[in-house]
Simulated assay, not measured.
Amino acid sequence: MVAGDVARLTVLSGPSGVGKGTVVAEVRRRYPGVWVSVSATTRRPRPGEVDGVQYHFVDDAEFDRLIATDGLLEWAEYAGNRYGTPVAPLRERLAAGAPALLEIELQGARQVRARDPQAQLVFLAPPSWAELVSRLAGRGSEPPAVQERRLALAQAELDAAGEFDVVVVNDDVARAADELVGLLTAPSPGLVPGE
Rank of each mutant, 00 (worst) to 15 (best):
E195F: 02
S39A: 12
Y83H: 09
Q118L: 15
E103Y: 06
R46W: 01
T41D: 03
S39P: 00
A25S: 00
R135D: 02
R8V: 03
V18Y: 06
V34A: 12
V87T: 15
D165G: 07
V38S: 10
S141C: 08
F63D: 01
L66F: 07
D51E: 07
A109H: 12
A3M: 08
A40T: 11
A176K: 04
A100V: 14
G4C: 05
G138M: 09
V169P: 00
I67M: 13
Q54M: 09
L153T: 14
R65A: 15
V58C: 06
F164W: 10
Y55W: 05
Q120L: 15
P117S: 06
L121R: 11
R150M: 01
S134V: 14
A40I: 01
V53R: 14
R175S: 13
G21F: 03
W75F: 13
D51I: 03
L184A: 13
A3V: 10
A96P: 10
V36H: 09
A79Q: 15
F63R: 03
D116G: 00
P89C: 09
N170F: 06
D165S: 01
R30N: 11
D171R: 11
R139S: 04
A40P: 05
Q54I: 06
A25T: 00
P126T: 06
R150A: 08
Q118D: 15
E74I: 11
Q107S: 14
G182V: 06
V192E: 01
V24H: 00
L73Q: 02
L102W: 02
L151K: 10
E49W: 05
L9Q: 02
Q155H: 13
R65N: 00
A174M: 07
L180Q: 09
V168S: 04
E195W: 02
P89G: 05
V2K: 14
T185A: 11
A98K: 04
V133W: 06
G19Q: 09
R110V: 12
R150S: 10
F123H: 07
Q107T: 14
L180Y: 03
P117F: 03
A96S: 14
V50R: 10
Q54C: 01
V11L: 09
E105F: 03
G162K: 05
A114N: 05
Q120G: 14
V133L: 07
P117I: 05
E26Q: 05
P86F: 02
A109L: 13
A25V: 02
Q107K: 15
G182D: 14
A109S: 04
F123W: 10
R82P: 11
R115C: 07
A96F: 04
Q120H: 13
R30C: 15
G140D: 13
G17E: 01
G52S: 06
Y31W: 07
L72H: 06
A125D: 11
V18N: 03
A96N: 09
L66C: 05
V36M: 11
D116E: 07
T85G: 03
V87H: 07
L90S: 01
S128M: 08
A7S: 12
L121A: 12
A100Y: 03
E105S: 14
D64R: 03
S37R: 02
T42E: 06
P15M: 13
Q155C: 09
L94W: 07
A176P: 05
L94S: 08
I67C: 13
V27E: 04
L153C: 04
R30H: 08
A174K: 13
L136Q: 04
R44N: 04
